[in-house]
C-alpha cells in the first residue's frame, strides 16, 4: 500500500522534473525558461521527496520518523529558497537589461 503511494508520488515528481528540463531547453528566452525552472522544479522536488519520505517510513521506528521529518525540513527549505533564488536570477537579468522575448503580434498592439 505504502509502496503504491511512493511509486505514484515519485512518478508524478519525475514528470514535473522532465517538464522543467524540457521547458529550460525549449522556451524562447531567459525569462520564460525561469518559469519552467522556478515552478516545475519546486513541485517536482515536493512530490519526489514526499514519495521518498513515505517509502522511508516503512519499518516504522523513531529513527525512520526522524529521517522523514528531516526530508520534510528539506522540502520546506526548498519551498522558501526556490522562489527566492528565481527572483535573484531574474533580478540579475533585469538589471543587466536583457530584453524579454515578446510575440510579434503582441508587439504591434
Amino acid at each position: 500500500m505504502l509502496d503504491v503511494l511512493t511509486v505514484l508520488l515519485t512518478l508524478g515528481g519525475l514528470v514535473f522534473f522532465a517538464g522543467a528540463t524540457m521547458g529550460i531547453l525549449r522556451f524562447p528566452d531567459f525569462y520564460t525558461r525561469l518559469h519552467a525552472a522556478g515552478k516545475l522544479d519546486t513541485l517536482g522536488a515536493l512530490l519526489t521527496m514526499a514519495g521518498l519520505a513515505v517509502y522511508n517510513l516503512d519499518p516504522f521506528s523513531m529513527a525512520t520518523l526522524l529521517t522523514s521529518l528531516k526530508i520534510g525540513l528539506a522540502v520546506g527549505f526548498i519551498f522558501i529558497a526556490s522562489p527566492t533564488a528565481t527572483h535573484a536570477i531574474v533580478d540579475a537579468g533585469v538589471r543587466a537589461g536583457l530584453r524579454p522575448w515578446v510575440k510579434q503580434e503582441d508587439e504591434q498592439q
Partner: peptide, 8 residues
C-alpha cells in the same frame, strides 16, 4: 504547474 507543464 499543470498549465506550464502542458506548454513545456
Amino acid at each position: 504547474n499543470i498549465h506550464v507543464l502542458r506548454i513545456a
